[in-house]
Write a protein that binds this DNA or RNA. Structure first.
Lengths: 336, 336
DNA sequence: GAACGAAATTAGAGCGTTCTAAACGTGCGA
DNA sequence: TCGCACGTTTAGAACGCTCTAATTTCGTTC
């Protein structure tokens, strides 16, 4: 090994034990906060430990104990702040339970995700959170049989993995009801096409419109800014613009805003606009996008809670949880 | 241990060896891609391995080999896409060199960072990247003596850690020169106060203005949207608005945009505006913020490259690298 | 002061790899 | 036929910790 000179001889429990004049077993007990260690020895050990600059070796610990006390979290896209917020909730819950988090990303590619999952398994994480996974169900079946797994934002059928989702249908209804309550009648939905969550949002929109007694009016799109621009171009060809637009997500809404501005139309003066996801960008003053907000942190916390139930053996059955979104009203939606 | 029933008896090298009728040493050689294993045995071992569903145990491997082949990356703020892009570069470089990345976050708090650093050290990472660290120099001195460390976006003096920075002075000059070349004379800088990188940006602005022969005009602020709003309020009290504003970062610029819009002033009609950092939000059509862009991916790659130099023993001396930013022109800056 | 039980401590065998040094074939030249 | 070199393979001792079972220590009680 080239860097042998770098392999510092770090102090081990043996060294600490020798320095403190006790056995390694006692040192081990001290570092695991065992209650049955005399105060006397405990301080002696701790003093010796930090005199030597001792750091317990997590690899050895994990190997010997068969548990790494680590939960692996796979985030599909690090650039998407959605995941950062979910992660906050997860980290907090995990830390509170005495677990560490091993964070990996799949770089939005299926192959990257599988590689990351394999890495986690080799690191012997005790459980896994898959946030917005793109992998196929069958490809992770073996993993789910080895450790507890929970998926966030997506649910697999026929696989032993728990899931945490947001109720997209309800979210869409929130948007529609809000716009309708402002007096808007012609409410168009630019949808997310094949994107994850697009279908239930569309369905929620259609159902809510029907309930209120308004005609559903869906324009095809996808989860991108370009879809928003295209949607506006499409609408401009009509005799007149709708009262309001409900975009499949915030990106689409940004596209809509830009395209309308380019054409001299104002939001919310000419058209009210509601997005979905409540991304960080939505709240910036020059934008102020009204948007449907998913309880991201809560989803992260819940994901960890589900794993802990499995880890402590409290539950063996699969569980699918659904949380309810809320609407954050800003300046892009106004009375008709 | 409560979850004993979950501690699946995963197959080990021993099992694979038995199944393939060879020694564990041979299995080990196969999994390390040793060249001196006969093709015959290699395939027998590999077949046996995946018949059993064997996954090498990274903990045991790291313990025995004294190297985890893992680089720890500490990201100060997961919500900030800046880090995501830097991480992309780092991950790519690390993977190419056969290293895995252990990603942690400090949640923007110094205490969180120290905890994360300790965790990495306990996991026995071979080297560490600190991206935008907030910790103090002395507090990580011991760590830097144990493993190679590189800091990104900040440099420590008196500590054995390499660093990768962007040249903020040059970046500020880019912004000033751009605005001046558009014919603007009264160019105000709303600065970043005590924030990291604020001082060199301010200095770069002042120097560039002096070079061009224009009077420097700095308004105090910090790296927040609120500072942008406050800056505009400040400017409105003057007899007339400046030709252009160079904001300390994009957040400040968003604040400026919002505040100007509120007061019925248009960008770039009344005032041209340049931000700094080129955040993802800057590029959205309804905003289109001209901004100084740091070569984030390149910075991540370079960070890993520096660590590899240390790991392979090619270099022992500290090295500080500085990369040059570029300007991305969008729609918030226009001729006077 | 002996006996006892509880509390505190320890010896020593793993955990699943890697690594060193030695052993084993095998083919080749003498 | 023997010896030797070379390419393969292996036994067995680490690596630094945890865990079980045993041992020691101690405070009580009789």
């Amino acid at each position: 090994m080239v860097s042998s000179e770098l392999a510092k001889n770090r102090p081990t429990m043996r060294d600490v034990a020798a320095a403190a004049g006790v056995s390694t077993a006692l040192v081990s007990l001290v570092f695991r906060d065992s209650p049955n260690v005399s105060q006397h020895r405990r301080t002696r050990v701790l003093d010796a430990a930090d005199a030597l600059g001792f750091r317990p070796n997590a690899l050895a610990r994990g190997l010997a104990s068969r548990f790494s006390r680590t939960i692996g979290v796979l985030i599909n896209d690090l650039h998407n702040p959605w995941f950062a917020e979910m992660y906050d909730g997860a980290e907090q819950a995990a830390t509170a339970a005495g677990y560490q988090i091993l964070l990996t990303t799949g770089n939005q590619r299926t192959s990257g995700e599988m590689r990351a999952i394999n890495t986690m398994m080799e690191q012997r994480v005790d459980a896994i959170v898959l946030a917005g996974p793109r992998v196929s169900g069958p490809s992770i079946k073996a993993v789910c049989d080895e450790v507890p797994v929970v998926t966030v934002g997506r649910a697999f059928v026929g696989i032993n993995a728990d899931s945490v989702m947001a109720n997209e249908t309800v979210g869409a209804a929130l948007a529609v009801d809000h716009l309708a309550s402002l007096g808007h009648r012609a409410i168009v939905h630019i949808d997310g096409g094949q994107g994850a969550g697009a279908a239930p949002r569309r369905a929620g929109y259609v159902r809510a419109m029907k309930r209120i007694g308004l005609p559903a009016d869906v324009i095809g799109g996808d989860f991108s800014e370009a879809a928003g621009v295209a949607g506006v171009e499409n609408l401009m060809r009509r005799k007149q613009l709708p009262d309001a637009i409900f975009a499949a997500n915030d990106l689409v809404a940004f596209g809509v805003m830009g395209a309308l501005a380019t054409r001299g139309r104002s939001v919310p003066g000419d058209v009210s606009l509601v997005g979905y996801d409540n991304t960080a960008t939505a709240h910036f003053t020059p934008i102020g996008l009204t948007s449907v907000d998913q309880p991201r942190e809560a989803m992260g916390e819940l994901a960890i809670a589900l794993l802990l139930e499995r880890l402590t053996g409290q539950r063996l059955m699969k569980r699918n949880e659904t949380l309810v979104p809320t609407l954050v009203v800003r300046t892009t939606s106004a009375p008709r």
